[in-house]
Design a binder for these strands. Structure first.
Length: 279
DNA sequence: AACGATCCCTGTTGGC
DNA sequence: TGCCAACAGGGATCGT
């Protein structure tokens, strides 16, 4: 599933293909691909003829600034993937967006489950696009341990659920939330508010480390192949995972069998020894 | 306000 | 073997 590392790798790929290029023609062919009160036709009209100024990432959102102030906003959802191809190549199935550039390349968005989107908003609408609800970026702008503890103070929800809340810290998804909690030795059901400042510090270090390793190894490609590197290869971070998808297997740190529970309708993997509940 | 449940969607998987 | 229910989850929304 694309989370911050996979989105960051995608951002770099798109930046290389798009910055300084003029978008010549755009085709949005799935009604759910355009969002935020923009129809597919409006997205096409807002993008065509524009030159790309910048390609940024906020949490799991890709934010592309255009020369007329409009902003292309994209999210990979669960199964979204961008490719850069020659226009003649046969688009693979579930291609919902195509943009042909002035250098002849074509940027495509493929998304079988349509949880992702590619849309276009103006500056005023950006705050209402989902980007406006994001907390600090988990990788570029992580909070200090004191700030994190402040955000979690009084919260009774499980820390796992709070790590998935993009308004607290933006970018973590189900895989890296589980990995960070394991690395930090924090039980996923610990109420957010009981974290000590030391635990917050450890957790933030673990988040940075887990994300940096994932970016460096090309992201996590699961068996469903929903995420692939720009060149079509699988990312190699699967072998770095300590708990996600490893229920029933021994923990590589201590040998205890990894357990899987459900927290807020999300599968949650942890080592009951490394992540013993805080008394 | 905070929290938990539900929904969206489709390719894959597991059980009978 | 074949079919179908269950499962996967990011984010919005709704009820409590």
């Amino acid at each position: 599933m694309p989370e911050l590392p996979e989105v960051e790798i995608t951002r770099r790929h798109l930046a290389q293909a798009l910055i300084g290029r003029r978008i010549e023609t755009v085709s949005v062919t799935h009604p759910r691909t355009a969002r935020f009160n923009a129809s597919p036709e409006e997205v096409e009209a807002r993008l065509e003829g524009r030159e790309v100024a910048a390609v940024a990432r906020q949490g799991k959102f890709i934010v592309i600034r255009l020369d007329d102030g409009h902003i292309m906003v994209a999210h990979l959802g669960m199964s979204g993937r961008f490719t850069v191809e020659e226009p003649g190549d046969d688009p693979e199935s579930h291609t919902h967006f195509k943009a042909t550039l002035d250098d002849g390349a074509q940027v495509r968005f493929i998304d079988p489950r349509t949880f992702g989107f590619v849309s276009a908003v103006d500056e005023d609408e950006l705050a209402d696009s989902g980007v406006g609800r994001l907390g600090p970026d988990a990788w570029l702008d992580p909070p200090s341990p004191e700030e994190l503890r402040e955000m979690l103070s009084g919260r009774t929800a499980p820390i796992k659920a709070l790590l998935l809340d993009q308004a607290i810290v933006a970018g973590l998804g189900n895989i890296y939330a589980d990995e960070a909690l394991h690395s930090a030795g924090v039980h996923p059901l610990s109420p957010g508010g009981v974290l000590t400042v030391e635990q917050a510090e450890t957790l933030l270090s673990s988040i940075s480390e887990v994300l940096a390793n994932a970016i460096e190894s090309g992201g996590t490609t699961l068996d469903d192949l929903a995420y692939l590197l720009p060149d079509g290869r699988a990312g190699e971070n699967l072998s770095n995972l300590g708990v996600y998808g490893r229920e029933g297997e021994p923990c590589e740190v201590c040998g205890t069998v990894i357990e899987k529970i459900v927290v807020r309708a999300r599968s949650t993997h942890f080592c009951p020894n490394c992540q013993a509940p805080s008394t």
